[in-house]
Amino acid sequence: MNQHLSPLIELQKLDLRIMEISEQRRKIPDRMHQVETPLRDARQVLQETMVSMEAVVKERRGYERDVEVQDAHNDKMRARLSEIKTNKEYQAHLFELQMANKKKSEIEDKVLACMEKIEQLQRTIKESQERVEAVEHTFKQEKRVLDELEGRLSHELAELEIQQRQQATHVERGLLDRYTKLKSARKDQALAAIKGGMCAGCRLQIPPQLVAEVKRSQGLHTCPYCHRMLYWEAEPTTDSKPPAESAKDNSLEVGESV
């Protein structure tokens, strides 16, 4: 690995983690909004039901006043029956009284209908209140989780930013400036390892000659496609010989044969 890039690679690891944490923190308000939505909806249903309840109660009271007015009017009409002289006038007045009583009965039916609505709305309000309590309990639990996550991320971010500033002092000034500009332009990592002959940044095949030069750490090289600074990351090697055969080879002395 290019020794000049080693401090920069470590700096990038810190930067990438900082970017990751910043992105996680950026999403927390949206997640908070999502977990709060069921609570807002439940509260809105409760509020709307209570408003409906108040409207029906007001309507019932209005009908009750109408019943009182109509009842007083009917009493006056009954009182006039004794004052009527002719049978024709009596029959006409009696018909008007019957119509007045019918009107009173219709109003009383409306009062009863309102009372039935009120009972139904009272049940709905109770159910809505229970729903709000249940959803509020769930919301508080989820909010506590998100608050704890925010606290952990904030703490880690503060520590990483200190390490970032310290690590930046170990990078050559010119190289740091180039890294900073490239990172700002790409909005992600400025360095990329070569893995399997490919740039780990853009996943495109690197020319073999360039791979060899990067592997030999000869100067600073960039990917011809994404222009990230390239570095060689040693790939793990495996022994293709079976353990028994390898042990047998090691046991042979110079000049011995099998």
Rank of each mutant, 00 (worst) to 15 (best):
E127G: 00
M115E: 02
Q120C: 06
A72T: 13
T238Y: 10
T37N: 11
Y179V: 06
D75K: 15
P224A: 12
K143S: 12
V35F: 03
C114L: 00
L16W: 02
P243G: 00
S6W: 09
L230F: 06
V258T: 11
S257C: 09
H33T: 08
Y179D: 07
T37G: 10
I118V: 09
E36A: 13
D249E: 05
S6Q: 12
E96I: 06
V111Q: 05
I162L: 12
G196R: 11
Q91N: 02
G255E: 12
S240H: 03
A168V: 06
L191F: 10
T222F: 14
E213W: 06
Q209H: 14
I206L: 15
V56Q: 01
H137Q: 15
R123W: 00
E161P: 04
A168G: 04
S217P: 07
M1F: 13
E23M: 04
F139W: 14
K181N: 13
S257W: 12
E106M: 11
H137Y: 09
E89M: 03
E83P: 01
E64W: 00
L8Q: 03
L149V: 03
P236C: 10
A168E: 10
D239Y: 00
A72M: 08
E256W: 13
G151M: 03
Q34F: 01
S257E: 14
E127T: 00
R186C: 09
L157K: 01
N87I: 09
S246Y: 01
L5V: 06
D71M: 15
G151N: 10
I194C: 09
D147W: 08
R144P: 06
I28Y: 02
V254D: 15
K183F: 05
K117Y: 08
V132F: 12
L14N: 03
T180I: 11
L210P: 09
K183I: 07
P242W: 01
A212C: 07
K215I: 11
Y179I: 07
A100E: 10
N101F: 13
R131G: 07
R31Q: 06
P242S: 02
R144Y: 14
G62K: 01
K181F: 12
K183L: 10
N87P: 00
L46S: 05
L94P: 00
D177E: 13
Q34N: 08
A55E: 13
Q34R: 07
M1T: 13
Q3P: 02
R178F: 11
V214K: 04
Y225D: 14
A168D: 05
M229V: 10
A79Y: 10
M1P: 09
D30N: 11
F139R: 13
A200C: 02
A234I: 11
L112F: 03
S257M: 14
D71W: 11
Q122V: 01
Q34T: 09
L8M: 07
E127W: 01
H227R: 09
Q47E: 10
V56C: 00
F139I: 05
